[in-house]
Design a binder for these strands. Sequence first.
DNA 1: AGCGTGGCACGTACGGTGTACGTGCGTCAA
DNA 2: TTGACGCACGTACACCGTACGTGCCACGCT
Lengths: 215, 215
Amino acid sequence: MTPEPLSRARIVRAAIDLIEREGADAVSMRRIAADLGVGAMSLYNHVPSKAALLDGVAEAILSEIEFTDDPDAHWTDRVRTQARAFRQIAHHYPRCTMVVVSRQLTSPAGLLPVERALSTLREAGFDARDAVRVLRLFIAYIVGSLLREVGVTPTFAPVGSILPRVADIDPALFPVVASLYDTLRDCDAEEEFEFGLEILVQAIQALPRRPGAAT
Amino acid sequence: MTPEPLSRARIVRAAIDLIEREGADAVSMRRIAADLGVGAMSLYNHVPSKAALLDGVAEAILSEIEFTDDPDAHWTDRVRTQARAFRQIAHHYPRCTMVVVSRQLTSPAGLLPVERALSTLREAGFDARDAVRVLRLFIAYIVGSLLREVGVTPTFAPVGSILPRVADIDPALFPVVASLYDTLRDCDAEEEFEFGLEILVQAIQALPRRPGAAT
DNA sequence: AGCGTGGCACGTACGGTGTACGTGCGTCAA
DNA sequence: TTGACGCACGTACACCGTACGTGCCACGCT
């Protein structure tokens, strides 16, 4: 009946599809099993628990990041490209983003991006300590940005924005927020991400680095 | 029997305590009710749903942020202070941090920090657009940092660090990660947060601002 | 004082969840 | 041929969120 046999990969795939289709709250072992046309308990022959399944989801998505790393490009451009790759994947799986960032994996699945980034930074002349710190700075910024972006676009229509309705804001209590309401309201996520990214890139470019490294 | 009558505030408080004591997975209406010595359904006389209760948790924690804002201080120091205030509250409720950042509230509860921050930035001479962008840059950085910090300290002992055990890393596949393992491993969260914060502050200080504003 | 009324704690019940466990069928190895 | 093993399946249990009905008690009005 089922063309392919059940497998961990197929289960993870079904979970991802389900999350994208109906949101993370809709995931249940029974539901995923139903989507695969099998009984709920059959999943446990390939996955030890629901938690492990969600780890698999995070792992699979992280490993889908595309690295078109051009070794000839300037290191700052490579950093930019890698940061955008992270963001890209989150936009490809918007409803999954939350589950990816919320579970911290102990598997080496998400290590390849780290490897690439650290490699780029070391080549750029950062010492070990600064390379790690800069990497973490970027990851923090990217994760934080994505969290807000997917929050603003919860389902399809962000009818209720993250901002309270304008009527709920008391200008006496929050004068600045009230005056900036329109600016806070409309946000071009792409443009804002690039704004922060550029600031970070410029800032770390000004950091002291080992002389003789790539300019 | 119960000294004080049931109330939304008392329920939220119990939820926070429970999360801090046993983790977010342990929260259930029955459990919270038991901790309060009442029946499960009694909670619904004060809280419409579990989701609303968790919103209340986020709201309560956010509103606990202490703002000892010194109007005489340089605006860069005020920015630093506000950023640290965010981090402080997350460290006061480490297990709650995830639930706070994971639900985006539509209530004006978390608006006061935004008001303060925007006010500071406007006074510093940023135009409306840049003030909002800079605020979001900082929020992204702070949220991302906290997410990693609370992830590294899941319970008390981070026996399984976010890094895979050193034995699991294949130096052939991840040479840079392997060589930087020790640096990646030990991290002084406070020091790293300050590192990124300082970079951000320096960077936005170099941004063009309205002339005549605070230097 | 008598009486209505509304708030609030409570218990029961229903549909759903993760998963421990036992069962039976298929397909390979000896 | 037979044994073992893999794997899909169903049942069962404890727990979850919460809709709904019941009864107590403290209050406002006449």
